[in-house]
Design a protein around this nucleic acid. Sequence first.
DNA 1: TCCCGTATTGACCAGGTGTACAATGCAAGA
DNA 2: TCTTGCATTGTACACCTGGTCAATACGGGA
Lengths: 220, 220
Amino acid sequence: MPGPKAPEEARRDQIVNAAYAVARRAGIDAVTLRAVAEEAKLSHGLVAFYFKRKEQLIGALLDRVLATTAMIHVSEDVARLPYAPQRLGALLRQELRRVARDPGGMRLFFEYWALGVRRVAIRRRIGAALERYRAAFRAIAEEMLPPDSANGREMTSATLAAVAVSLINGCAVQALIDPGHFDTGAYLAAVEILIERLAPAPGADAARAIDARRDPRPDR
Amino acid sequence: MPGPKAPEEARRDQIVNAAYAVARRAGIDAVTLRAVAEEAKLSHGLVAFYFKRKEQLIGALLDRVLATTAMIHVSEDVARLPYAPQRLGALLRQELRRVARDPGGMRLFFEYWALGVRRVAIRRRIGAALERYRAAFRAIAEEMLPPDSANGREMTSATLAAVAVSLINGCAVQALIDPGHFDTGAYLAAVEILIERLAPAPGADAARAIDARRDPRPDR
DNA sequence: TCCCGTATTGACCAGGTGTACAATGCAAGA
DNA sequence: TCTTGCATTGTACACCTGGTCAATACGGGA
């Protein structure tokens, strides 16, 4: 099973790496066999040899894009926070920072999103990725909305997770298109206020202190 | 000003209409001079004659897309609502309904958004459209966040408007890619709960009951 | 009726695309 | 050393793109 097919797989990785570089630099439309081949210092014939159809190359590239934009990693520091609203806030803060730090990845994600509108295979994979993304928030949301039905009259963990994902993606849509007119720091502050309003946390200040220690104040 | 340049302008409209139809059916990539010409039952030479550069056709098409997706219309019914939170909720409901009723338009908007990432002219126009879109919400938000600084510690009308726009665009991103796993109705309900939590409207008994429980924020 | 100006057409071009494949290079085994 | 097998190359092809432009169709004055 774990055959030493290293060389062949390494070539494929090299090609996908090159495709990723091209896509970041000039967009998905610019990911042509020849452009990728030049980036990888190979002949375009070889690229076509390893990915029989261009669609396969685009699909392999999508793997990488989703891995870096729609994959959430709950760090130890975040998981240790005792109150769910704190964790939700910390996670939102983490993801919004990622968007601000690596806008290129998010741009690529949206380019694929638009592609997925017409191509079923891509659409399904993006839908699944978003579903996994929501699941990470849903786990936290379940703690925030306990059986106390008066608290969440119609609010379920699923919808709260969807709102959280909306806040991230919606911010990206606005911030990436004109960073000048969009204050991500203020946006994040507003989101945190919303969270407190939804489920006041006893130690909100503690959570802020932790984040402040790691990153002294976002721009202003 | 009302020059009888009707015929020439009518042709351009006809061409843009055809381009819009093609874009809705098959995406922006499919908007080629020949495809548009065929849709309009003209020769591709004529399309190229009226729009010297394809970029101009794409630009004219963007006008139409923005007019139907990033243009907000506050109806009389909504404007008559006495309390700002009510108007905010009604506006969000209206826009989310529009997204659900005409997904094609929103898809095109995002396709252009992705295009704008690389093309400055498009990016600027989309940025401006989003700014106008936010402005509509900002007007309402200003009423919701009066000089009562304790109410909105860091929350300004601008950021609240940005959050509202995020909720719409973020919902579209999730709902359009896999309508099966996304309950827009539940999402809207959650958003309305958030609004009540943020600024309880007189007459919303449930919201008041919750607030009575414990909401006065410990400042700082 | 002819005539003329303009709206319209269709052929043509240069460039770029994905794909196929014969021709090469090359390194390891006999 | 020669041979063999495979990774790699470059060429070729059919198609499509945006753009140009001479040739044409056509409709309304004279």
